[in-house]
Design a protein around this nucleic acid. Structure first.
Length: 371
DNA sequence: AAACTCGTCAACCGCAAGTAC
DNA sequence: CGTACTTGCGGTTGACGAGTT
């Protein structure tokens, strides 16, 4: 179909907006509403095309736009969402209140993308060469594609490890499931992030036993694959003990196939990955944490349970033992790029844990499907 | 001090989906 | 149902400032 120009190019101003133009546009929209963008410039007395007005309003003048640097929480969310949604900036922006798609796109291209590259992470696929996340991402974010053993980078030693083979088996059976599940969990995770600011966090000890199986499994796999920067980077960040926090003994990893011991993902941290169901069959992990529905009206489609992954754990790590609801529990704009860089390399590994854990509890065709 | 490079981000462009007629 | 038009989106551009040579 034919399409005319969005506006008459003659007499239409381009380039940066002046304060006077901003004022005209803001005043008009506040009084009249945007209405028809095409006719707005004429009505508002602006020498701009409607498209330019709409862009200026949505990306800059809108009163609910958040200004300033992205918080670590926001950055973490962007990376997670991008791993699922790709370059669908508007979809990502819809999940980040106060941020525009243009802003997120710019921030991705100028900051996040470069840092991921420096960390050896492909910003398109989010795959880390020869690490757990690349395996998990292949299965979780691309369920239509088969996981190939070549994903393991030809590391035959890793293939001989029964734990890796078991993980591979789990992921292979998951590949039929819809990736919407993962997106849903990201959304829940975001909601949970906000809740974490005000509520105590359940501990690992109260989780279903199946999850403990995964906790045993994953570090063994990581060990077998001896992958990337993961262990190197986490070790100095995860001291065995942090003042004010007593690590749960059940959360300490033990490798079943070697004498090695591992620092668990969460040791010394404030929060733990956790299942959180809203029916009566599973005890709420921590009675001090209210149901999500009570707090937000959020309704979980289909599943009726919650998964808390470790995603925001790193946010609370730096300033522990500060209170969870303290603003200082977030890595804010004063945190260094290096700080963020170290933590961002952990994101891929952690973001997949919740999904795998859920799968272990309710394999396809299993308990959950029968409900 | 001038020239150059690089990073940032607001704004533009073209396309496609959605909507009204 | 087809066409004209509007809106939204993602990729790209270019102005500008800061840092470097």
């Amino acid at each position: 179909m034919g399409r005319g120009p969005c506006c008459d190019k003659n007499g239409v101003k381009k380039g940066p907006w002046t304060p006077e133009e901003d004022d005209k546009l803001t005043t008009y929209i506040q009084l009249q509403g945007p209405g028809n963008w095409r006719s707005l410039p004429k009505n508002a007395g602006l020498q701009r095309c409607g498209k330019s007005c709409r862009l200026r309003w949505t990306n800059y003048l809108r009163p609910d736009i958040k200004r300033g640097k992205f918080s670590f929480e926001e950055e973490e969310t962007i990376i997670q969402l991008h791993s699922i949604l790709g370059n669908r900036w508007s979809a990502i922006a819809a999940r980040l209140p106060g941020r525009t798609d243009n802003e997120i796109k710019n921030y991705w291209n100028t900051h996040i993308r470069k840092r991921l590259l420096r960390n050896g992470i492909d910003p398109v696929t989010h795959a880390h060469l020869l690490d757990l996340s690349s395996i998990l991402s292949s299965a979780l974010c691309n369920p239509s594609s088969l996981i190939s053993l070549s994903t393991l980078g030809g590391n035959t030693q890793a293939l001989l490890n029964p734990d890796i083979l078991r993980l591979y088996s789990i992921l292979s059976s998951m590949k039929q499931e819809n990736s919407d599940l993962f997106l849903q969990q990201i959304q829940e995770n975001q909601l949970r992030n906000s809740l974490l600011q005000n509520h105590a966090i359940p501990t690992l000890s109260s989780q279903p036993s199946q999850f403990q199986n995964l906790v045993d499994l994953v570090p063994a796999c990581i060990s077998a694959a001896t992958t990337g920067p993961f262990l190197n980077q986490t070790t100095p960040l995860m001291p065995a003990n942090v003042e004010g926090f007593s690590p749960n003994p059940t959360s300490t990893f033990s490798c079943r196939n070697s004498q090695e011991s591992f620092v668990p993902f969460n040791e010394g941290l404030v929060s733990q990955p956790c299942f959180y169901r809203n029916n009566t069959t599973t005890t709420t992990a921590n009675p001090t944490v209210p149901e999500l529905e009570e707090l937000s009206g959020f309704q979980s489609p289909n599943n009726g349970y919650r998964i808390f992954s470790t995603d925001s754990v790193i946010s609370t790590r730096l300033t522990s033992p500060g209170p969870l609801n303290s603003p200082s529990t977030y890595i804010n704009s004063s945190s260094t790029e290096d700080d963020r860089e170290c933590y961002s390399s952990l994101l891929n590994q952690k973001s997949c844990m919740g999904v795998v854990a859920r799968h272990l509890e309710f394999p396809p065709g299993g308990q959950e499907d029968m409900r």
